[in-house]
Each structure stands twice: as structure tokens, then as C-alpha cells.
């Protein structure tokens, strides 16, 4: 079966063997949602971010203009995040297209209040100039879209927080999860799209809720 992954095998086996094999996968790993009761309320400016907010990571990022970018500046906006790399020939263009499908599915008002983040795995190739060029090629509206690069160490941290798996398999070549993440206006993981060309209605519905 071509779609079988080692991870799948892993889970099966891990749960089948002795007690010395820890089984963290059995633990509920659905990200806690702190947003249910006030999902549609706009966030107050100085409200402290929840403990599980990705916005409070304090990692230095640089955007496509070469300017420092603080994730905390996203507080108050639902944010769609994709990790990718610019020279990717296979799925990354499709994934970017999927994020654009989310953007297109939104009402104009919701679209204007939503942010779209592309974070590269490959900061040595994806310089600010290269990220700028990618944004232009893909006609990304930079009032909503931001392309980020950071140190390798911080990219691993960010991927780990989002649950993105990736490996560098050679110069300019990576394998990685196809995973698009929706962060609620406080930066807590709300839901994720796994795979390519998945339905975007759930993302759109939630974003409309946050921005109503």
C-alpha cells in the first residue's frame, strides 16, 4: 500500500508490545481550545496570551523585506500557517495553493482580518529577496501574507510546536509533513489540514467565527 507511512506502522507496533514501551500517542493530543466561549469576541489589546499560544514563543524571525518580525504582532488575528521551502518542486506549490483556497473561501471582511504565514525550512536558500520574489510570483497580497525565515534552531522549534515533521535530505531538499495550521486570534492551534487539496470549509467557518 503506497500510502503507508512508517509512523502508522510505528503506532501499531508501539501499542502492541511490552509495558516498557511508552505510548504517548495514546494520550489525547488534541490541542486544548481556549477559545470556545469567546471565539467570536475580538481580543482585547493587552489581554495576556494563553499558556499554549504559539505567539508567545519569543523567537526572532525575519520577513520577506528583511525586517524583524515578532509573532506576538499577530495577536488578535486568526492566522493560517504553512511551513514550506521555496525550491520545493513537488507539493509546496500545491500547499500554497491550498492556503490561497482558504483565503478565497473567506468573506471580504474576514479575509481582511486574517493573516497568512509562510515559514521556510530552508533559510540559507530562501533569503528575503527570494521570499519577496516568491510572493510576487504567487501574487500574494503582502498586507495579509508574510513570508518568514529564521535560524535552523528556531525553525525546528516552530515545527515542533506545530507538530510538523521534516528532514533535510540534501542541499535544498527537504521532506516534510503537508500540514496547514489555523491559529486562533490568541495564537492557539485551532485546527489543522493534513494532506493536499483537502476541503477548506472548516477553516473558513472558524475564521468567520473569529472575525464576526
Amino acid at each position: 500500500m503506497r500510502s503507508m507511512t512508517l509512523g502508522l506502522l510505528a503506532l501499531t507496533l508501539a501499542s502492541a508490545c511490552g509495558r516498557n514501551t511508552p505510548r504517548p500517542a495514546a494520550r489525547a493530543d488534541a490541542p486544548p481550545c481556549h477559545c470556545s466561549h469567546d471565539a467570536s469576541a475580538p481580543m482585547a489589546a493587552n489581554q495576556p496570551l494563553p499558556d499554549t499560544s504559539v505567539f508567545q514563543m519569543g523567537v526572532p524571525w525575519t520577513d520577506q523585506s528583511g525586517r524583524a518580525f515578532d509573532l506576538a504582532s499577530l495577536a488578535g488575528s486568526p492566522t493560517v500557517v504553512l511551513m514550506f521551502y521555496g525550491t520545493c518542486q513537488s507539493t509546496c506549490p500545491l500547499l500554497v495553493r491550498d492556503v490561497k483556497r482558504v483565503e478565497a473561501a473567506l468573506s471580504p471582511a474576514a479575509r481582511a482580518r486574517t493573516r497568512f504565514l509562510l515559514v521556510t525550512f530552508d533559510p540559507s536558500t530562501d533569503t528575503p529577496e527570494r521570499l519577496s520574489a516568491l510572493a510576487a510570483e504567487d501574487h500574494l497580497d503582502l498586507s495579509r501574507w508574510t513570508l518568514l525565515r529564521g535560524a535552523d534552531h528556531d525553525i525546528r522549534t516552530f515545527a515542533t510546536v506545530l507538530g510538523v515533521q521534516f528532514s533535510r535530505v540534501g542541499p535544498g531538499e527537504y521532506t516534510h509533513s503537508n500540514l496547514i495550521t489555523l491559529l486562533d486570534p490568541q495564537g492557539v492551534v485551532a485546527t489543522q489540514l493534513e494532506g493536499l487539496q483537502q476541503p477548506v470549509e472548516e477553516f473558513a467557518r472558524r475564521i468567520e467565527g473569529y472575525t464576526r
Binding site: 503506497r2 507511512t5 515545527a159 515542533t160 515533521q165 521534516f166
Partner: peptide
């Protein structure tokens, strides 16, 4: 969390 994959994605 390296990616070990056996599928053509």
C-alpha cells in the same frame, strides 16, 4: 520529528 516517509506524496 524528522520526516520518514514511504509514500509518494
Amino acid at each position: 520529528n524528522s520526516a520518514l516517509v514511504v509514500t509518494d506524496s
